[in-house]
Nucleic acid binder design. Structure first.
Lengths: 212, 212
DNA sequence: CGTGCGATGTATCGGTCCGATACATCGCGG
DNA sequence: CCGCGATGTATCGGACCGATACATCGCACG
């Protein structure tokens, strides 16, 4: 998961660890707390060893005046390699069952802008099936095994069931949108200027702007 | 987390690993997929080594006829010890910040029937605060950093924000109920007969039965 | 003027938990 | 009679977390 997210982010621009964590937190804030350095740094090392990313020496930027003396040990900037991009594409292509659990799905979804439509559809439907199964399990428990459980546990199940139903509806909408070739209903996007320096696919198309 | 859940479950009745996993899955189905044997068995061993649980030899039940020969190696039943019950109480008492993340909160909530009201309130409020913080973070991103993110990422944040607002409302209700000394609004409970063999606290009180 | 504190930044260690895998028994239907 | 799904115990490598350590920089407050 982390590997996937790092490769995805580094395709937007080179970054050092700290920055990577902040961007990751911003992008994945909806689905997980905050990535730990205890996972981040070892993973960066692993990716570098595999050749998916490389260290890009920090540009000193007009700092010829202070060459050594303080040794100027600073941030380590990483950039993705061609092999890394291939790797990322491969990880997207082989989106399997493990892609449908909460975290896995969220991370993949966050990079849907770099995912082709067919794969997007496949992932959304896989996720829907998984949530439907969870929903049925909860309904079973709330029906058949209700008297074996205490009031609090039941309340927990009920809340979980509600969340499942809600997510299924959300996924249905996304799937319908996807099939009709539109992007998710997005409030402002509009004339989002911004830089466009890399080979990311064109934005999935602006859409009308209503309250759901 | 697993330690807590196992100690909680074994207070209802002795169980072997497989059964434990099934009960755990039923009780926690709303918040996590299914506990892995790769965590369950090592944890059981750890709890046994610590003295919180003991192996209760399987009662052969009229099986004197077939003593050895097949060696009759079967399930290993565990039961909680007095120290284990103390340990569980201690884990409840020291419910700290780590109790407020998604899994931690869910597991603690599932055992609210064995938790005193003051602690229940403390946990619910801690959780609410945490979710409110997450909500604010998402609002920030959706406000300030919106144009830096693609339509899919934004949609993910929006869905997450919605879930946060919903959970806060849910928690508010639970807190209000808790303060007024009622159990969560529960549809049937009613005259739940059932065995009552241990020292679990009395059920938190029946409540009226309306659609929310 | 200094000093201390919060943000930036890199890094490791122990521990928890997962996913895959292996293997054995039992009952039942084909 | 044979296979298959449910029951049941167990291990191993790997992913990720939380705590911790340590160093630099800028600026606000005394």
């Amino acid at each position: 998961m982390l590997e996937f997210a790092i490769l995805g982010l580094l395709q937007e621009s080179p970054m050092h660890g700290y920055e990577l964590r902040k961007e990751l937190t911003a992008k994945l804030g909806a689905i997980r707390a905050a990535i730990s350095y205890g996972s981040l740094y070892p993973t960066l090392r692993r990716l570098q060893a595999a050749g998916w990313i490389t260290e890009a020496a920090e540009t000193p930027a007009t700092a010829e005046e202070v060459p050594a003396l303080t040794s100027r040990r600073g941030r380590v900037v990483y950039k993705i390699t061609a092999e890394g991009k291939e790797r990322f594409a491969q990880l997207i292509a082989q989106a399997g069952p493990e892609t449908y659990d909460d975290t896995g799905f969220g991370v993949h979804f966050a990079f849907f802008a770099r995912t082709d439509q067919a794969t997007r559809l496949r992932i959304l439907e896989g996720r829907r099936r998984k949530i439907e199964e969870r929903r049925e399990g909860l309904r079973d428990v709330l029906g058949r095994a209700a008297e074996r459980l205490d009031a609090y546990t039941l309340e927990l199940q009920r809340h979980g069931l509600d969340a499942c139903e809600r997510e299924v509806r959300w996924l249905e909408e996304l799937i319908a949108n996807e099939r009709s070739g539109r992007a998710p209903t997005v409030p402002h996007i509009g004339t989002a200027g911004g830089r466009r320096e890399d080979n990311s696919p064109p934005p999935p198309g602006e859409t009308r702007n209503e309250r759901p």
